[in-house]
Write a protein that binds this DNA or RNA. Sequence first.
DNA 1: CGCGTCCTTGACACATATCAAGCCAAGTGG
DNA 2: CCACTTGGCTTGATATGTGTCAAGGACGCG
Lengths: 230, 230
Amino acid sequence: MNDCSTCVVRNRAICASLDSNEIEALGRLGRQQKVSAGQSLIWEGGEALVVANIIDGVFKLSVNGADGKEQIVGVAFPSDFIGRPFGEESPYGVTALTAGEVCMFTRRDFDNFAHQHPELEHKLLHRTLDELDNARKWMQLLGRKNAEEKLATFLLVMSKRLAGQACNPADLSGGFTLPFGRQQIADILGLTIETVSRQLTRMKDLGLIDVPSRRDIVLRDKEALEDLAA
Amino acid sequence: MNDCSTCVVRNRAICASLDSNEIEALGRLGRQQKVSAGQSLIWEGGEALVVANIIDGVFKLSVNGADGKEQIVGVAFPSDFIGRPFGEESPYGVTALTAGEVCMFTRRDFDNFAHQHPELEHKLLHRTLDELDNARKWMQLLGRKNAEEKLATFLLVMSKRLAGQACNPADLSGGFTLPFGRQQIADILGLTIETVSRQLTRMKDLGLIDVPSRRDIVLRDKEALEDLAA
DNA sequence: CGCGTCCTTGACACATATCAAGCCAAGTGG
DNA sequence: CCACTTGGCTTGATATGTGTCAAGGACGCG
């Protein structure tokens, strides 16, 4: 059982829809658990056994084609909800990209609880609708943008989510630290690692961005990037 | 006000979650309306004013890039729900591909009604989760499949939704009639019209499909197509 | 210091886009 | 009933962006 009253994402996670009695009841069903980078919580095509709130860390949702080519279909951050409620199997895997911590429930427990708490379902519906909008915007990127447009869009989106979060020199000047390696960026954008690398060096050469270290990015010319993002 | 008791999608639409009193109340808020091919109900980036159940016809959800390139991010059939509840603006447009009929509500009316009827929201949540799964599967197609794989996947998916629905010779032998022209297929798959055309003739030459007329398709070798779909 | 992993860079190949022409079927008007 | 037009589709020639293959470089870690 959890002590939800000390939970750092308490006010941003879907739990925020519940009153203190309800939260206690839900807390009894869940358990907090540390995860290490690379650890999978849910497997593509596997039974959807658990759902979770992310307390800390970054997770990828991914689908693997027959030929082994991976496509990342979503990225989840602290306070996001992951898993597939009300479904027998998960059509995508969920894997930690960084070390982190989640608040886990069995899907059965969660489904039952949710069905009895309309406000929770309402909040979940809101989030699912938002995620669907995001997924559809991303479909446009995958289907109709070229490599340059993809990278520019990616950097701007990540900047919005990550800028000024962590505490290191690069972040202070409006930069951010990516929780992804180059291969993962490629898997998000539907490109190869080489194309990602080339586009980044090109943008660096054009003075649009700085890359102080492998995973740090500083946007030097946001307007130009927005133009490129199309 | 509608007479929902005679509605042909009554049992498959989200209304199926309601009892007869509730359905009558909902019916008072909606109105049935004919739409003609090409007519838009919702505009990309516009205020989300209405939502609707599809009674008849096929609709596309689409996003247009700055350069005018369209990406179709979803296709909706009879009994599907369209529109963006609980949101100020719609990130995609909704347009009829064929003549049809919808049961329309203002978003305000619908939002209020839904919030007071948890079973309806529950059903809507189910559907939204399913749509999100579909969108993510489609992201894998857009990001990681080549033209051949895309076409094969498309034909199989459409076959599942459309086979044996309409009443014409092609449909009887396991074929189906597409509600799309070539350009729309291209917009769904993130390809150009020429590539779509070439892949179709190639599949025809290989004996995998028949194309008795522009919009009719018969799958002659489903297994081979499934292999190609990857 | 040496090893492994991740990233970058280069040369080349190929799938798909682009540009351009022609075809076909359906509809229209003489 | 037959030219004529029209819009959608197919086909061909060519261009190009991105993938593929291969080598080398940078950084972190033991």
